[in-house]
């Protein structure tokens, strides 16, 4: 029992992301409103971004902006700076997320213009008539 609690406390960050991911995933597959599905996708994406950024954290590490003269002298230590690679990947992922949200909102507006509703069941009924 002690070891399980210790395990959970040492990795509590992953628990937060998994809970956020479950909220987003449930909204995506369980809700019937298309806007709610889109919001669920955004929550899902946020949990993945947080997960990736947290893999770059080092205990006691500073921001990934180093002193230029230290860097030129080659005296920067890798252990004192957080991992910059997840930050770069997530910077691009955020922009892709904004693009996906924009296109999805445009398609939702078009669906609303066509069918007059954003509820999944009502749209399916109107398609089948």
């Amino acid at each position: 029992m002690e070891s399980i609690v210790g395990e959970i406390v040492a990795k509590y960050n992953y628990w937060i992301y998994v809970v956020l991911m479950m909220i987003g995933f449930y909204a995506m597959i369980g809700k019937r409103n298309l806007v709610k599905k889109l919001l669920g996708m955004n929550i899902f994406q946020t949990s993945i971004i947080l997960f990736f950024v947290s893999t770059g954290v080092k205990k006691g590490g500073g921001i990934p902006i180093v002193d230029k003269y230290q860097g030129l002298a080659g005296t920067v230590e890798a252990a004192s700076t957080v991992n910059p690679l997840p930050h770069v990947l997530m910077l691009t992922a955020i922009v892709v997320g904004v693009s996906v949200t924009g296109v999805a909102l445009a398609v939702l507006q078009r669906i609303y213009r066509e069918y007059g509703t954003l509820e999944e069941d009502e749209i399916l009924e109107k398609i089948q008539r």
Binding site: A10, K11, Y12, N13, S54, T55, G56, V57, K58, K59, G61, P64, I65, V66, D67, K68, Q70, G71, L72, G74, V76, E77, A78, A79, T81, N83, P84, L85, P86
Partner: peptide, 29 residues
């Protein structure tokens, strides 16, 4: 959480942190 020896932090990123300023003259890695 925060392990400096994590696999994600030991493969490629030490090269970036230690050599990026020498190779590009940009302090923001």
């Amino acid at each position: 959480w925060g392990d400096p020896q994590a696999p994600a932090s030991t493969y490629l990123s030490p090269h970036y942190i230690e050599d990026a300023v020498e190779e590009t003259h940009v302090p923001n890695i």
